[in-house]
Design a protein around this nucleic acid. Structure first.
Lengths: 235, 235
DNA sequence: ACACAATAATTGGTATGACCAGTTGACCAT
DNA sequence: ATGGTCAACTGGTCATACCAATTATTGTGT
């Protein structure tokens, strides 16, 4: 009936505003940000809040701060962190289809590699755990439960792939999709509604057939795409 | 002859210390960070510096802050940003070989996709620009110049791939390698010392042969690996 | 002894105002 | 043209107070 109230720290709001202005291009690379004192006036908050926001922007490589020399906007195409994807995706009211396509492509490419490496490297114990999860998926009742199991499945795959870089990259991707789903309930079909496909992939992994496993994953992810985005070039 | 002097803001030092303690596992997931006031005493700095550091840590998803309820350490395996790779790589005095291997695998996988997509999508103008760059590479004198040209080459590839997610992911990877080279001059052979291989790849792209281009990239990147890391499973 | 509401203590969030420390540019002397 | 001096500006640090949310404690009634 009621919705949770949106509480947000001041530094958070300041951060979001400046970030979006940079991503929208209102603030262009090379531009100087107003001085911290001026920003205090403009946002009507104290300097601490401004500085905290600036630290976050710096962390995302959106700006460069120089002691005594002002703060400069960077080109996020060249320096921006991949953590910007959620913000880029939802810059306007509707999700940006071009960005969405990019994210899906990235997920597909990374996913394939994870499945491949996991197939080649993972222990029997990992395969057993994956087996357990798919079984639970098949007789799961609620969507929310299948979603949780799907997350479990991927987490296990990532551990099996023995690659921390992929693990961290997936964290970012997951945040991106979380934000997306939160704002737009059904932009994407949910791959976790297809437990049988998970099982097919696992079968391939159990026989250590990485090519087949990749192919099954491709099927799992691509069939979940809306037609407007399905014009991706497959290998 | 001379080196730039290492100047670092206080909040920066605080940030680095806490970050490393989390990555090292001294601070475990679920642990409570000391309160901001206590941290002030421990680090002997002002509360503003502490708070700025905390904002950065939060941005990296290393901690979770709750108004009035303290600050909790998160499991970076599950939540951490991919921006942690540079720190993970150089946690101890020597680069962590396991992490290094992960990063190289990620670079290879992403690189292949970028080359593939660029081959399929890029304009003739992009191909011309790539041609220019490789020509410059061939008659470049200094290493520093080849490095710059190599960066140019990749930047152009990324634009040609028309995928913002890959672009941002590469920014992170580039930072990782920059940090690595900065600390350890010659852990890796430098792929930009092999201009001919760049040209072979470009030839494949010009004939829109994405499979061949991928293969040439594989050769370019894999031959640059030290033998201790070359036991990667190739597809 | 237990449940529960009121209260106190703790923790993060915001606000001022001051001063320190680099950067920049104008001006000047060499 | 080079380097020094100075003032104005910008980011960095500090101390202190108070607001706001959470958590622990206390006290009350049953």
């Amino acid at each position: 009936m009621f919705q949770a109230v949106n509480k947000q720290a001041l530094s958070e709001k300041v951060f979001a505003q400046i970030r979006d202005q940079i991503l929208l291009g209102t603030l262009k690379p090379g531009d100087k940000l107003p001085s911290e004192r001026k920003l205090c006036d403009m946002f009507a908050v104290n300097r601490g809040a401004i500085r905290e926001a600036i630290k976050r922007l710096e962390q995302l490589q959106l700006i460069q701060v120089q002691h005594g020399g002002g703060t400069t906007v960077l080109d996020y195409h060249c320096h921006g962190s991949i953590e910007l994807l959620p913000s880029l995706l939802l810059l306007n009211e509707q999700p940006n289809l071009s960005v969405l396509k990019s994210v899906l492509e990235l997920r597909l490419a990374l996913g394939k590699e994870v499945v491949r490496l996991c197939t080649l490297r993972c222990s029997e114990a990992t395969l057993s755990k994956l087996e357990e999860i798919t079984v639970s998926m098949l007789d799961s009742q609620s969507t929310i439960q299948r979603e949780e199991l799907s997350t479990q499945f991927w987490k296990t795959l990532l551990i099996g792939s023995e690659n921390i870089a992929y693990q961290l990259a997936f964290n970012t991707l997951q945040r991106t999709f979380t934000v997306l789903r939160h704002s737009f309930r059904s932009v994407l079909s949910q791959e976790w509604e297809n437990p049988k496909q998970y099982q097919s992939m696992l079968r391939a992994m159990q026989s250590r057939n990485s090519a087949k496993a990749e192919q099954e994953l491709n099927h799992l992810l691509v069939t979940a795409l809306p037609s407007s985005l399905s014009n991706m070039e497959s290998p």
